[in-house]
């Protein structure tokens, strides 16, 4: 089955995020006064062929641990769904 995967990589809680802090500091200049807790991450999307959803999730978790994130400073949030128009 083909699965559509989305990995959101974010800095772990407690790790300083200078990009997020810079965005947050600049928002009041544009008149957005109520924004707080800005954190910047990245989103990685791909398709994955796997036997079932559990197998797909296990493979993506391994991929995140070994390559897509640096576990010292980053966390991954994984979303796996059957790809539309699955073969």
């Amino acid at each position: 089955m083909l699965f559509s995967v989305q990995v959101e990589v974010s800095l772990r809680e407690g790790v300083a995020d200078p990009q997020g802090a810079t965005i947050e500091r600049s928002l009041p200049h544009l008149g957005f006064d109520g924004v707080q807790g800005v954190r910047v991450g990245k989103c990685i999307r791909f398709d994955l062929e796997a036997a079932d959803e559990a197998a797909a999730t296990a493979e993506v978790e391994d991929l995140c641990q070994r390559f897509l994130t640096n576990p010292v400073i980053e966390d991954a949030t994984i979303t796996v769904a059957a790809a539309s128009g699955a073969r």
């Binding site: 800095l11 790790v15 300083a16 200078p18 990009q19 810079t22 640096n70 010292v72 400073i73």
Partner: peptide
Amino acid sequence: LTEAGLLPGALQKNRGL
């Protein structure tokens, strides 16, 4: 070397960007 696991820790963006 940190990514390869030969040294502990990680390098992130400079304070002050």
